[in-house]
């Protein structure tokens, strides 16, 4: 064995021996069996409870539909309200112009006299963006939104342009992976992080992981990062989790119960892990979303398989 290898072995042994002097308090704590949680008393479900238990899937679906419908109604009401306000403002001050976004442009003299008006305009613009995003969401989900169609089709065009640009950046020999990337991209656009998130997508080459397609968003001040890459050939056949540890990342197979296992935030609150599909393609996630949102985000990938 080389001197260097021998030296490292000696160092490891020193570390192992130093562990003998660990505080008794810590050792004692490690010897205690963890407290068993008291079993939850099982009651015979009542008729209503039993019905809910048996049909929980259907009920959850109904609830989702109801929530979507309610959200749609609210966004329409807000649009109508906005339109009514604009109309009344136009009637009250016919000399004022309106821009395409429905935000009233005040004359310069009046703006100077009332400096708060600038703020009001900014707020209105923000409101409009929110409404537009809601509508765009509904379009993505396949809903007919009436007046919002103009904005919705604009969003579609923009999405199409983005899709085209991504297709150009995906090499032909990784077409299957590129397809997955596009599916994920569409999913993300339609159901998650829509609108004005500061988004970026790029391709990088890593020494170990090879070519990586990456997306990142800034969501509420937190960076959410997704990266798509393929497992090295030798790693596809073995234990995926162990292969991940060798590569320095926790990996879960999409077929496994990853939704239960993955949640282990780092010290800074960041969650970082990867999902591997049966072809050995890895979707690496790194971000600060809560568990529910992370599952929501990555279930799209699982379904896209």
């Amino acid at each position: 064995m080389s001197d260097r290898g021998q030296g490292k072995e000696n160092s490891t042994m020193r570390l192992m021996e130093a562990l003998s002097a660990v505080d008794e308090e810590l050792l004692e704590r490690s010897e205690k069996e963890p407290e068993q949680k008291e079993p939850i008393p099982v009651k015979m479900p009542g008729r209503v409870y039993g019905f809910v238990l048996r049909n929980k899937g259907i009920l959850a679906a109904c609830l989702c539909v109801a929530l979507l419908a309610a959200g749609f109604r609210v966004s329409r009401l807000r649009l109508d309200d906005e339109a009514a306000k604009t109309k009344s403002a136009r009637e009250e001050s016919p000399e004022m112009g309106t821009n395409l976004m429905g935000i009233t442009a005040f004359p310069a003299e009046e703006a100077e006299a009332t400096p708060n008006l600038q703020d009001t305009m900014a707020e209105k613009a923000e409101d409009f963006h929110e409404i537009r995003d809601d509508v765009a969401n509904d379009v993505g989900a396949g809903n007919d939104v009436g007046a919002g169609n103009v904005e919705g089709s604009a969003t579609d065009e923009r999405k199409q342009q983005e899709d085209d640009s991504i297709t150009e950046s995906v090499p032909e020999d990784s077409l299957a992976m590129g397809d997955r990337a596009l599916q994920l991209e569409r999913y993300l656009d339609n159901y998650y992080l829509p609108g004005e998130c500061d988004r970026d997508s790029y391709t990088v080459t890593d020494d170990i992981k090879g070519e990586i397609y990456a997306w990142s968003w800034v969501d509420g001040g937190y960076l959410v990062s997704l990266r798509l890459w393929e497992l090295p050939d030798g790693e596809k056949t073995g234990n995926i989790h162990d292969a991940g540890l060798k590569l320095g990342i926790e990996l879960f197979e999409t077929e496994s119960d990853w939704k239960e296992e993955f949640w282990e935030p780092e010290e800074d609150g960041r969650v970082w892990f990867g999902l591997v599909d049966r072809n050995g393609v890895v979707l690496e996630y790194c971000g600060y979303l809560d568990k529910e949102k992370t599952i929501l985000l990555l279930t799209g990938w699982e379904q896209a398989e």
Binding site: A18, A21, V22, D23, L26, L27
Partner: peptide, 27 residues
């Protein structure tokens, strides 16, 4: 010094991680 540092490191760890580490490398 190494023993002292190891102890302070282990005290900084969350209980579960510390326990798992000791079961693996002490026991």
């Amino acid at each position: 010094e190494l023993e002292r540092l190891l102890n302070s490191f282990l005290h900084m760890l969350p209980e579960r991680d510390c326990n798992v580490f000791l079961r693996r490398y002490w026991y």
